Amino acid sequence: MSYIRGYDPETLRELVDARECKDRLDEIGEQRSLPALLERVWLLKVLGRLEDALVISEQSVRVARMAGTRKDLLRARILHASVEQQRGAFAVAEQELTTCAAEAEGKGWSGIAAFALQHRGKVFYDAGDYDAARADFKQALFLRQDSGVPDAQLESTLHAIEAADQRRMRASVAS
């Protein structure tokens, strides 16, 4: 079930039904499986509970390192970096996402590479580097198209490219 109802056109953050997310968080409870931990991180993040999300994301990375696959670890690290981004730790998030994208691309895991690049684009977007954001969003779009993802994921990437273009135009008019 998807809890995402759309994306904020200014921040590119997920728009969710907070009640549904809180209910799901209660349902998951204190489960410690990797999928449950990752879902808890995401739910806490979209609910704005960033300190809680950070703690659980660090735990999910440890669990993935010990008991998951390499793909699991990359997904956990990308989610952790997205929490850091929302906390404003752009340099930390950018470095982690760059490393994850490079590893995923090196392994031929285009879906995971696209996921990392989409999030790194959001880091650049939040930091005001709209050219770099657009470049990452475009690369994520090509990788997602190549891996045959659902239209909704393509749409979110197309929306991000458009938002970066609009911000670039506003920035050039203002200067």
Score class of each variant (00 low, 15 high):
Arg62Ile: 15
Asp146Asn: 07
Ala140Val: 02
Ala127Thr: 15
Val63Asn: 03
Pro9Trp: 11
Leu79His: 02
Gln59Glu: 15
Leu34Ile: 10
Lys71Ala: 13
Val41Pro: 09
Ala152Tyr: 07
Ala127Trp: 14
Leu74Met: 09
Leu37Met: 01
Arg13Leu: 10
Arg168His: 13
Arg70His: 07
Asp72Ala: 04
Thr99Gln: 09
Ser2Asn: 07
Ser175Ile: 09
Arg77Ile: 12
Glu51Ala: 10
Ala174Leu: 09
Val173Leu: 08
Asp131Arg: 01
Gly128Thr: 06
Arg77Gln: 14
Phe142Met: 06
Ala163Asp: 07
Ser147Gly: 01
Ile28Tyr: 09
Ser172Gln: 11
Ala133Trp: 05
Ala91Gly: 02
Arg87Leu: 13
Glu84Gln: 12
Tyr130Gln: 00
Trp42Gly: 00
Ser82Phe: 09
Arg24His: 13
Lys122Val: 06
Glu103Tyr: 13
Ser175His: 14
Pro9Asn: 04
Phe137Lys: 00
Glu162Ala: 01
Phe137Trp: 07
Val173Glu: 13
Ala81Asn: 04
Val123Tyr: 08
Tyr125Phe: 15
Ala18Trp: 05
His119Ala: 03
Gly6Gln: 09
Val16Cys: 06
Glu20Ser: 05
Glu10Trp: 11
Val92Pro: 00
Ala113Cys: 06
Ala89Thr: 12
Trp109Thr: 02
Ala102Ile: 13
